[in-house]
Amino acid sequence: MTNVITADQRLALLQALVACNNDANQNILQTCLAQYGHRISMDLVRNHLLWLEEQGLVKISRLDQNNTAFFVATITQRGLDVANGLSVVDGVNKPNPQY
């Protein structure tokens, strides 16, 4: 069950980036995830973003804020393809068909 939830949270992050004009900071993304039914910690948001970056689905800009990195994520073309169901990546849910 954990894998199903994790994969859905990752898809929700990609979809949130699309909805935010392709980039957003970690706070906005956490709020968007809550709107999609995933109320999770900032640490988990950041872990998902790092995983998505490793897969080439997002690029992360790290801004220094009080000696702590603050993430701003930008979706890549590959990430757009996954968010739109045109490509599949293990560990990310496929979106439901649009009707």
Rank of each mutant, 00 (worst) to 15 (best):
T2G: 10
N3T: 08
V4D: 09
I5T: 11
T6E: 12
A7W: 09
D8Q: 12
R10A: 04
R10H: 05
R10W: 06
R10E: 03
A12P: 02
A12K: 04
L14F: 04
L14R: 04
Q15D: 03
A16Q: 04
A16L: 02
L17F: 01
L17G: 00
V18S: 03
A19Y: 04
A19T: 07
A19P: 01
C20G: 02
C20S: 13
C20L: 07
N22K: 06
N22T: 07
D23C: 09
D23K: 15
A24W: 07
A24H: 07
N25H: 10
N25C: 11
Q26F: 05
N27F: 15
N27D: 15
N27V: 15
I28N: 01
I28P: 04
L29R: 05
L29S: 00
Q30G: 11
Q30I: 14
Q30P: 10
T31A: 12
C32E: 15
C32M: 14
L33Y: 08
A34R: 14
A34V: 10
A34M: 07
Q35L: 12
Q35V: 08
Y36R: 14
R39G: 08
R39I: 09
R39K: 11
I40V: 12
S41M: 08
S41W: 08
S41E: 09
M42D: 12
M42H: 13
D43H: 08
D43V: 08
D43I: 09
L44W: 08
V45Y: 01
V45S: 05
R46I: 09
R46A: 14
N47L: 09
H48W: 03
H48R: 01
L49N: 04
L49E: 06
L50V: 06
L50I: 03
W51E: 04
L52G: 00
E53N: 07
E53A: 05
E53L: 00
E54P: 01
E54S: 02
G56V: 11
G56R: 13
L57R: 00
L57G: 06
L57I: 05
L57D: 05
K59A: 13
K59S: 15
I60V: 07
I60T: 02
S61H: 07
S61L: 11
S61P: 05
R62C: 11
R62L: 12
L63N: 07
L63P: 00
Q65E: 11
N66A: 06
N66I: 06
N66H: 09
N66P: 02
N67L: 15
T68A: 15
T68D: 14
A69E: 11
F70C: 14
F70L: 15
F71M: 07
F71A: 07
V72N: 03
A73D: 04
T74P: 05
T74E: 13
T74K: 11
T76S: 15
Q77M: 06
R78V: 07
G79E: 05
G79D: 00
L80P: 03
D81G: 12
D81L: 10
D81M: 03
V82S: 03
A83S: 00
N84I: 01
N84V: 02
N84R: 13
G85W: 09
G85E: 08
L86I: 13
S87A: 12
V88A: 11
V89N: 01
V89S: 07
V89L: 10
D90H: 15
D90Q: 14
G91R: 01
G91K: 04
V92L: 03
V92Q: 01
V92K: 00
N93F: 03
P95H: 06
P95N: 09
P97F: 13
P97E: 12
Q98A: 04
Y99N: 10
Y99E: 06
